[in-house]
Design a protein around this nucleic acid. Structure first.
Length: 492
RNA sequence: CGGGGUGUAGCACAGUCCGGUAGUGUACCUGGUUUGGGACCAGGGGGUCCCAGGUUCGAAUCCUGGCGCCCCGACCA
């Protein structure tokens, strides 16, 4: 790890990779573009899953599972969706290997075992799910369908990056069907808000809720909404999307129902998803020179207890007291790790748990045992103080919620400082190059301008914020009239 | 697929220009001393030097041809 977080993108990339490896989260696999998520990294993902899943259930959704493979004919049914993903699909063409007679001991694809119809490995599941919904929906009484799936998907990206873009990734995708456009739009916005709540309240990550421009819209959707976050290198990261699909998929797959009035109608759809990319967001938003900083609500370990001792007797006595403390905190619902390894010194353990982002560390030595105290250190600010053991039960909950709030406020302050309103094209380019972050500017609403700006500056329209004020202005690029400001940024 | 870099012990690298049979740090193992911020000393184990071919008495090093990986770009709901 470097002395401080690098600002040049190239260096930041290397720093990020190193952090992901050192904190024991994940590593590149032998398999092209794929990632191995290691136990510690996965335990953080599990915390995310649990929190999200509860939020989905609380909003009336249920989980199900659909196939990994999508027959090509189904995949291509919704044309825009198929076209959007065509360039990055993995395809299964054969179902058998056989011994290669030319190369003893090796196997070859059996040319006799060619599939009649190729199977696309899902890059997203709209096709397979809507083809199934067709069978499930007859009447308005079958609606709404509010289903979520936890799954893996494959997108054959050219360049990959741990957590942010990998050939295979884990995610959740919700797919719902409704009787009316209004109900579907409400669902789309509801789930966008669920994502924003999750990002802000669990990940301590402030996000902008917005709508995507035509150029950035999900293929096959009528409207795409998103939450956008700001990373510490000033680049934007799309942290979640929620799509209003209109009747596009219903029409492509013939999903119809008989309404209360006895009329045959196509259903209205939504889909929404977040992925292991959120792990990347979590790392890039909060980490410092000493490693990961985890928000308490997502930390697999809330408190680590490190004993300090010279003799075996001391170790025994401290361990006995530490076990009591751990038991007490666990009773309160906290995850506590007592690091009683005698193969590492305390200093080493301090550094290791800091690297892994554990929010609170308790250190306990002979002096403490004598005084009935412990040293308590918080990860976000590195502050340490000595308190009486009796105070722990009250101190820990307060400190954890303080840490959660502090890293959120810290990120928000950073994000706000990195958000710049500009009114001229020169200023626009200047801010992007020298400061980075979000640039709030007027845009004429055309895809041509969007593309032109991207070509010159590499900045894209991250979103049209939902709370954007109506404010007449002139497009930064074309000078044509614009009704409101939108957010531009260079993005991951 | 383009531009740049790189391939030598688990990891990070030196050695390559100028050919002589491989080294440093770290990690690992053993013993001892240590332990309130990444310990120290001593000893030890571990490498087809990316692959193939060539030159040579002799190749990590020189030549030819492959391949891998990293960063940047193209791509990326």
């Amino acid at each position: 790890m470097g002395k401080e977080i690098p600002t040049r993108h190239e260096d930041y990339s290397l720093w990020y990779n190193e952090l992901v490896k050192k904190a024991d989260l994940a590593e590149h696999s032998e398999v092209r573009g794929c990632m191995v998520i290691k136990p510690y990294g996965y335990s953080i993902w599990e915390k995310m899953q649990q929190a999200l899943d509860k939020m989905f259930k609380d909003t009336g959704h249920v989980n199900a599972y659909f196939p990994l493979f999508v027959p090509k004919s189904l995949f291509e049914a919704e044309e825009k969706n198929a076209e959007g993903f065509a360039k990055e699909c993995a395809i299964v063409t054969h179902y058998r290997l056989k011994n290669d007679l030319q190369n003893p001991g090796k196997l070859m694809v059996d040319p006799e075992a060619k599939l009649e119809e190729e199977l696309v490995v899902r890059p997203t599941s709209e096709a397979i799910i809507w083809s199934t919904y067709k069978k499930w929906v007859q009447s308005y009484r079958d609606l709404p369908l509010l289903i979520n799936q936890w799954a893996n998907v494959v997108r054959w990206e050219m360049r990959t990056r741990l957590f942010l873009r990998t050939s295979e990734f884990l995610w959740q995708e919700g797919h719902t069907a409704h009787v009316s456009a209004e109900e579907a739009v409400n669902e789309t916005l509801q789930m966008l808000n669920v994502y924003a709540d999750f990002a802000e309240n669990f990940m301590a990550l402030p996000v902008i809720r917005g709508k995507k421009s035509d150029g950035e819209r999900f293929p096959g959707a009528v409207d795409t909404y998103c939450i956008e976050a700001m990373m510490q290198d000033g680049k934007a990261l799309q942290a979640g999307t929620s799509h209003f699909l209109g009747q596009n998929f219903a029409k492509a797959f013939g999903v119809q129902f008989t309404s209360k009035e006895g009329k045959l109608e196509h259903v209205w759809g939504t889909s929404w998803g977040v992925s292991t990319r959120l792990m990347g967001a979590l790392i890039m938003a909060h980490s410092d020179d000493d490693g990961l900083v985890l928000p308490p609500k997502l930390a697999p370990i809330h408190v680590v207890i490190v004993p300090i001792y010279k003799t075996a007797d001391e170790q025994k006595n401290i361990a006995a007291r530490a076990d009591q403390i751990a038991a007490g905190l666990r009773k309160q619902g906290y995850s506590v790790k007592f690091d009683n390894r005698d193969t590492y010194k305390p200093g080493f353990k301090f550094a290791e748990w800091e690297l892994k982002g554990v929010p609170i560390r308790i250190a306990m030595g002979p002096r403490d045992l004598e005084n009935d105290t412990v040293e308590i250190a918080r990860r976000d600010t590195k502050e340490k103080k000595t308190i009486r053991i009796g105070e722990l039960d009250a101190t820990i909950p307060a400190l954890l919620s303080d840490i959660q709030e502090n890293i959120y406020q810290r990120s928000k302050k950073f994000r706000d400082e990195k958000t710049t309103p500009v009114s001229t094209w020169e200023e626009f380019k200047h801010v992007l190059d020298d400061k980075g972050g979000f640039v709030s500017a007027h845009w004429d609403g055309t895809i041509e301008t969007e593309i032109a700006i991207k070509e010159v500056t590499k900045a894209t329209i991250r979103c049209i914020p939902l709370d954007a004020k109506e404010e007449a202005g002139k497009c930064i690029f074309s000078g044509k009239p614009s009704p409101r400001r939108v957010l531009f940024a260079r993005a991951y």
